[in-house]
Design a protein around this nucleic acid. Sequence first.
DNA 1: TTTATTTACGGAAACGTTTTCGAAAAAAAC
DNA 2: GTTTTTTTCGAAAACGTTTCCGTAAATAAA
Lengths: 342, 342
Amino acid sequence: MPASPLQRTNLKKLAQELNLSISTVSRALNDSYEIAADTKERVKQKAQELGYEPNPYASGLRSRKSKTIGLVIPEVANNFFSLAIDGVEEIARANDYHVLIYLTHESHEREATIIQHLAGGRVDGILMSVASESPDASHLATLVESNVPLVFFDRVGEGIATARVTTDDYASGYRATEHLVEQGCRRVAYLLISDTLSIGQKRMEGYRAALQAHGLPADAALIVPGTLDRDQNTRRIRELLEQDPAIDGIFASVETLAISSYEACQQLGRRVPEEVKIISFSNLATAAYLNPPLTTIRQPAYEMGKKAAEILFRAISRNRPVLPTQSAELQSTLVVRRSTGG
Amino acid sequence: MPASPLQRTNLKKLAQELNLSISTVSRALNDSYEIAADTKERVKQKAQELGYEPNPYASGLRSRKSKTIGLVIPEVANNFFSLAIDGVEEIARANDYHVLIYLTHESHEREATIIQHLAGGRVDGILMSVASESPDASHLATLVESNVPLVFFDRVGEGIATARVTTDDYASGYRATEHLVEQGCRRVAYLLISDTLSIGQKRMEGYRAALQAHGLPADAALIVPGTLDRDQNTRRIRELLEQDPAIDGIFASVETLAISSYEACQQLGRRVPEEVKIISFSNLATAAYLNPPLTTIRQPAYEMGKKAAEILFRAISRNRPVLPTQSAELQSTLVVRRSTGG
DNA sequence: TTTATTTACGGAAACGTTTTCGAAAAAAAC
DNA sequence: GTTTTTTTCGAAAACGTTTCCGTAAATAAA
């Protein structure tokens, strides 16, 4: 028995049915001015009827437009990135674009191979937040060479001339530290993600400046880099608190380190906020229901995703490179809760 | 000045450089048995040297393989789906596949148009968790007609003959309810996501069965459907608790409803767990640090994503349809914490 | 040595679009 | 009534792969 070929309707079939040429049908569907209004109508009608869906690979090949952007982020199990994805997807949908998602898991190697693939023309543009393990941005140079528009958000690659959507990290770091000091802290530890990430550096600069402004010493021993392993982070923080019992404030530059701090304090029996006050960069939806409720610096993650996507699409639609001057800096907000309370 | 054409290296250019034909170069790169070992080596060497990256749209068009799967989920700002994405991405990468992500935001209409597009051949297969607003699965029929492999995970579409990766929802619903009853609850409310979702139904069946088994009445007034708006959910729960003060247990079938329950109890000054005990399906990483720590039914989200992807890739690689018999049911685990404590 | 088979490659068609070029018919200008 | 312009469409060439088919040389079988 001859299995029905199940021929997906394409332009050829559509043209035959309509007694028109392929080119006419194509133009009609693309609303070309060269096609008579009634013909357009007839074509669209038939296309609808036969459930025609253009082959994205054929049109991508011919038109050199993939209608797709790449979203490269370290992880997804993180409220900041989840919200950012939401914003990106929103704008992508509005522009009739598709979103390819890639997770680096903070690995430089993964990031490099992903970028390598994306430079091959699979996407019309890229949004990314660089991996903490990436020592520099040299692996992103091929993108620039390939003319693939790129916009950074939150975690930027230094030395790449393109737009970046960030938050006021220095100011936020300053404000967070100052808040701890104002609440009575005299010895504040700073937990950072990675040495190489610029946002960690900027937040730390704010931290240092705030300490200095309030006449407190900036002790290098108070600065603890985190790892990818939560248990290990908890252990490090615990050791820190044990070795330096005078520590009465913790400034976590990233969400997971705040959780580890809670764990460490719980294990050591240190009361929060009475003995140790904790503040963290975080977009946790449940921050208000933690025990105690966590004071956070909340980044406008959703808006950052939207903004970054908007900048990218402006470049794509105008067929222009993304310029550093199009960068945007959004403001984080300090949400005071009991973890830094009196 | 003549701007350098910046010709991306393709097979043609590669063939010219090597004094070989296009077909030979293509076959060499694809490790065809027809090509001599030393030629392969020479070709690959040159490809590496010129940074050749095959055009995905050309090869997708010709080979009818997109090397891409579609992931269709309701939202991403949800720990369950975040973890599932992680699992999916892991397997996709292992199979050298790309992942297109689509968010339905629980909208049936969005879901339908997404599916419509995906049926056009953009992806080799689809993983999805259906939107709560989808009344039935009729919009998924086109996929089956188009022969696009589909695997459901967690939220399934009834009536579609394909594999599904779920958890033991009935048993979990039963266990959760029984746990509340054993902890002394006599009047347990059930908060569900949506009327149409099968998982909500199954969990509710377990809930009903457990009540009956323990000689408790199943009052329809105890069953409250949620909405997409968190504040509205909180209000409804608050009204429920006010109108029926005898309620001493809440079973939330989804994470956000647990948060709303916390909010409602806090607003009403009801103590958890003394006056009201709360249990919830949830994958919150911070469940243990909530106030009070939340007793959860934790689904193996990461594993579900992995499993669903594995089933899909088996079908794709063997070029066979996905069969319902390949479905898998994983087990959720009850994690008892203080929100249901004595 | 002659014939059959295998090895290693090239030519060209095909995938389904978009787009360039051309051209007939209709409308407008003269 | 002729010429010019506009309107509307068709033929065919791309886009960069994969793959079918053919074929020369090299090897094996006779």
